[in-house]
Design a protein around this nucleic acid. Structure first.
Length: 267
DNA sequence: ATGGTCGGCTCCCGA
């Protein structure tokens, strides 16, 4: 049975609901995971999702910042929220699917802290928070090894040398420092997670999901980073099909700085 | 540890 999941850091779901609708109409995923929704639950534009058959919603929200949501055409049997890193930030939501092809599968949607600009936990509390968050993710995945589990989201770390435009020049830049990449790879290893995107786009292919707003010539300079991820537990490895990164969405009107990821499964 | 541009709790802060 096919299952198609989309993940997108939308950077305000209210502002960009028409872009989300376009993605849903063009790609028709079964499930969409959003990060940085940036609104309270009562402000979430549910009607655009309901009109397209995404009548099941699980979200964790806070005013103005962060926020993650899972919208699905298939019902949920369970909804869970975890709070890592010693803050009450809205950065994680998980569901277990009830009926349908994904029945029994757990889906986690994460928005890992960006970490500020200075890659030193002693000088920058935001970077310390990010490292603490990643450390807690590792403890969490080691304590509770997943089965039949998919993890998606904006992990705000580009773990591999070919996940950035210049490994050498990025080693001191938050998102690609050894402190972060070591931690992300440790989470992967401890949890037995498989990087679904790299499974069919292996290194040394350069793969990016984010291009900064600060570069007016983002497409020409192509200084991207692979900050968004789809991971699966080892028992789902064989079910992973095509994954795609919809770079075209970065050129849509008033775009997010992240583009959607699509992952197909054959369950 | 350049500066650049976005979003929202908007003349600032987080990304």
């Amino acid at each position: 049975m096919p299952l198609k999941i989309a993940s997108w850091n939308i950077n305000s779901v209210r502002l960009r609901i028409d872009l989300v609708s376009r993605l849903l109409d063009e790609e028709r995923p079964d499930v969409i995971c959003l990060q940085e929704t940036k609104c309270l639950e009562g402000q979430f534009p549910l009607s655009a999702f309901n009109a397209r058959g995404y009548t099941n919603a699980a979200m964790t929200c806070q005013k103005g910042y962060h926020g993650v949501a899972i919208l699905s055409r298939q019902p949920f049997a369970e909804i869970d929220r975890y709070r890592f890193g010693g803050k009450e930030d809205a950065r994680h939501i998980a569901v277990v699917f009830g009926e349908g092809p994904a029945k029994g599968i757990t889906l986690h949607n994460f928005y890992v802290p960006a970490g500020g600009d200075i890659p030193d936990p002693d000088l920058n509390p935001k970077f310390a928070h990010k490292l603490a968050y990643l450390d807690e993710m590792r403890s969490w995945t080691a304590a509770k090894p997943g089965a039949q589990t998919i993890l998606v989201g904006d992990l705000n770390v580009a773990p591999l040398p070919d996940d950035v435009w210049s490994h050498k020049q990025m080693l001191g830049v938050v998102s690609h420092t050894p402190a972060e990449t070591d931690r992300l790879l440790a989470i992967q290893e401890r949890g037995g997670w498989v990087d679904a995107v790299r499974k069919n786009k292996p290194e040394p292919e350069r793969v990016y999901t984010w291009w900064s707003y600060r570069s007016p010539n983002w497409e020409l300079s192509d200084r991207g980073r692979r900050l968004d991820h789809v991971w699966v537990t080892g028992d789902l490895d064989a079910t992973v099909g095509e994954t795609s990164i919809l770079k075209g969405a970065r050129s849509w009107e008033r775009p997010s700085d992240h583009v959607p990821l699509i992952a197909n499964f054959d369950l």
